[in-house]
Nucleic acid binder design. Structure first.
Lengths: 135, 135, 135, 135
DNA sequence: GTGGTCTAGACCACT
DNA sequence: GTGGTCTAGACCACC
């Protein structure tokens, strides 16, 4: 089971934190394709948030193609694979990264430092992935 | 003068878009240290938003150390330089980058593609800077 | 509940008076760590000011680390403790105290009188704290 | 002559900075009773601010009894001595000190640290005073 | 119902 | 004319 850690005083909405952590779970391999996720009800009670909040997160993940929601089988990580790298997605990545990169430049981080940071984050997420490959 | 382009129907608050674009302006060298920014009122009327929205953006930029409100020269890019790379800043960068990297991994972008994207964005911002150097 | 007393004709902005009184409430122990504060709207209507004025006070207190906006519990005194004594804070204290001390010297208060005044104010704030300890 | 140092990007109005620095000049003994101050015009041009700003500072200092303004002799530190410690003054000191002390308590400065800080500031101002005594 | 955001319009302090 | 403050009223996102 994926361990969800929420910061209730963050400015990031809870449903967004949920979405992010589930996507990170998939990216890291802790959640495998086809693997079941807890029901809206049980997850909501587990992490102590409103049903609507979990529901919103699941709805978003479904819309973007990360999960499937079946009446009987429940919620599962989409067994047919992840959504592709669309132009729309690239545009979103670009617009999200731009202000981050700009701020880094302003404060004097050079390009290599920034790339190192991204690489470090990538490693931090993907290393569990290797365990999956070997497991 | 910096050209501000707002997306009024974006989910990103207008004041945040303003903050980002001004930071990008500084990062790109289009806005130089000590350079004056338009007054709250004139910028607000120029871009067609309320004065308070611009004021909020300026207040945030001031708090983070990007600009100063000089009693005689008005609002200027902080002539004493940009805020440093603090631990707090690195933590913010990390938490902002993490979900972006995770989503990229999920969708099958490999590490190099991601690094290339960041590098491309970096170039896109910094190239105006070079024009300044050479100009 | 903390009793807020505002002087509407003071030259001190209302939001600053609010910030000060809430900080005094925490210092005196009348507001404990983790204790909830009234919502922006209810406090605004209670003390008869605009919602934005209260909001500005809360925003400042949040930025300085005195309070948190918890997504479920609402606004609370930061349960993780108060902000530390940073160099920046000491510098602010110094620059605020300097003109006060200078004026006292001019008017002939000697050092001991001044120290007594500070001690008296300190007691005045901290004594409620003792009541809490003993109560 | 008193050296005036203004911070144009401070949130403290320039006229207030002027008032404070002149009072500190008197407190430290660098400005003696009866000593002449520069005219509004010359001071304004010296420090590069508007006439009105200097005028406002002098007006306030006169109202509080720190200086005298004569048509012929010009502006002088009041030769008859400084204003006394009135109840009104004590009330002002109290209300100014209260939020400073409260914030110090919140952040964990103990009473002695605070008293030490005040004493240190007092010394910093008054030590020039001794030179006056000996001079 | 909560805080967050935006608008519109007003007054004041400062320079 | 500048920024700072305050008000009033509105809509939205979140829970």
């Amino acid at each position: 089971m994926l361990i969800i850690e929420l910061e209730m005083q963050s400015d990031t909405p809870i449903y967004t934190q949920l979405v992010n952590q589930i996507i990170e779970g998939i990216a890291s391999g802790r959640l495998k394709l086809g693997e079941p996720l807890p029901s809206v009800r049980s997850l909501a009670s587990d992490i102590g948030v409103n049903l609507h909040t979990v529901n919103k997160a699941y709805t978003l993940l479904k819309q973007e193609g990360y999960i499937q929601v079946h009446r009987q089988r429940g919620v599962v990580v989409d067994p047919d694979g992840m959504p592709p790298v669309t132009e729309e997605f690239m545009a979103k990545q670009h617009s999200q990264l731009k202000p981050i990169v700009a701020e880094a430049i302003c404060r004097g981080m050079d390009k290599q430092q920034l790339l190192d940071l991204v690489e470090q984050i990538h490693k931090g997420i993907a290393e569990t992935d290797n365990e999956k490959e070997n497991g």
